[in-house]
Write a protein that binds this DNA or RNA. Structure first.
Lengths: 231, 231
DNA sequence: CCAAAAGTGTTGGTTTTACACCCATGG
DNA sequence: CCATGGGTGTAAAACCAACACTTTTGG
């Protein structure tokens, strides 16, 4: 073969990492999962969970592994957001990051580990100072998320298995950052035919109990043709 | 600094490349720009223009440079499509590709160069066998393009500076792969307020001449709020 | 005068929005 | 019995889809 490893020597040394932007709803707020870095660069600063690819890993596999290692969170569905390749984004040298988005329900237990001092949820609109270009990545992830929530059924990934329509509506309102009309919301959701009633009721507080629903399918699907579910 | 270059040695060697999917309309068909590879791997096979990043280049800069070097095409606006990082996608070893989409008007002159035997336009729906995972990349690019043409003003990048409404409609029909109603199309386009009349007429053939239009702004913009311009 | 593409409005159906009251519960 | 969130329908407005004929030209 005319090309071999050594022919690449004139090219810049480069490493590839994966990062994950994991959103949840906790305390009625949209939150994002961050770790406090144990090692330089940016030691002590918060950052997205992520790290370098190992020899035989795809970027997605690396993101899944790093998530598990650094935060204990696993079994999430990741969607690629894009590649971040500015030559100056990492002070160590050339590191390109492939970033992913995921949604988690807030019952996920977080644990700290070797690479991270701690893993915690942060309010999307009140983030600490972040390492690298991670603030920009989260910003992009939010835009992406707003599109996805309206064109796919990803909401199932963030809610518990059974939920009330009010909880679902609240999720949409948090992500879209706008109030939705209760009756119109319910009409639309029911037309989409994604949900089914459980026959159970959810009781809490001094008011009428709410019907619990579940997603018919707990796997990623685009919503059929109807591009815009809510505006 | 606790981490330095040498600490990366346990990680897989990896190289990063950029590829560009350039679309145009030529002979009333949607076409893609491909090069015939001069060197292995896949010597003699068609592939997307692209190549390895140099030391201080961002992936976008590399894509622009490779496009110019391999095809002579320049001054295009690129939009990132995503990263392709399957460990097996390149027989030489680990090569991650960051892929970009661009539109070109068909007057661009193509020239062949050192790395490529030739650069040519190919019908999107009649492509030759392609190197690497480039067939998949083009497929993804088409989906992306269909979304972009409906939510942004990128059409300006593919048409000549002045054009008729019929030419514009044809462009949408080719990308969306469906016929559009002439009157509805014109109504919508005029509402979007992206175009202005030149006072010139375009004459060709034995029929009434058409008014020539131009885009008010020749820079990338999302269409305001109205997510779906055509269905 | 013929063929060919340019140009132009209206209507019916569908979708979206705005809006207000009764219900069931716990305390 | 009261405060709280759950649950429900309708009417007006906006939007979308379907549709046909006249105009201008070159040959």
């Amino acid at each position: 073969m005319a090309f071999s490893i050594k022919d690449w020597s004139h090219l810049g040394r480069m490493q590839v990492a994966s990062d994950a932007v994991v959103f949840t709803v906790l305390n009625n707020e949209l939150q994002v999962l961050l770790i406090k870095r144990r090692y330089p660069p940016f030691k002590g600063t918060y950052a997205l969970p992520g790290g370098f690819l190992q020899q035989h890993e795809s970027p997605e596999e690396a993101a899944i592994r790093e998530l598990r290692e650094e935060t204990g969170v696993q079994k999430l569905h990741l969607h690629q957001l894009g590649a971040y390749g500015d030559p100056k984004r990492d002070p160590r040298g050339r590191v390109l990051s492939v970033s992913y988005i995921a949604l988690a329900d807030h019952h996920r237990k977080l644990h700290s580990t070797t690479d991270a001092l701690r893993a915690d949820w942060f309010l999307v609109h009140n983030l600490p100072k972040l390492a690298f270009d991670h603030a920009k990545i989260i910003e992009d992830a939010l835009v992406h998320l707003r599109l996805e929530i309206q064109t796919t059924n990803i909401a199932y990934q963030i809610l518990t298995r059974k939920f009330t329509l009010s909880q679902l509506q609240k999720l949409y309102e948090l992500i879209l950052e706008k109030k939705l009309d209760k009756r119109n919301f319910r009409k639309k959701i029911k037309e989409l035919d994604l949900l089914e009633e459980t026959k159970e009721l959810f009781r809490e507080g001094a008011h009428r109990p709410a019907m619990l629903y579940r997603f018919r399918d707990r796997e990623y699907k685009p919503l059929s043709e109807k591009i815009q579910a809510f505006l």
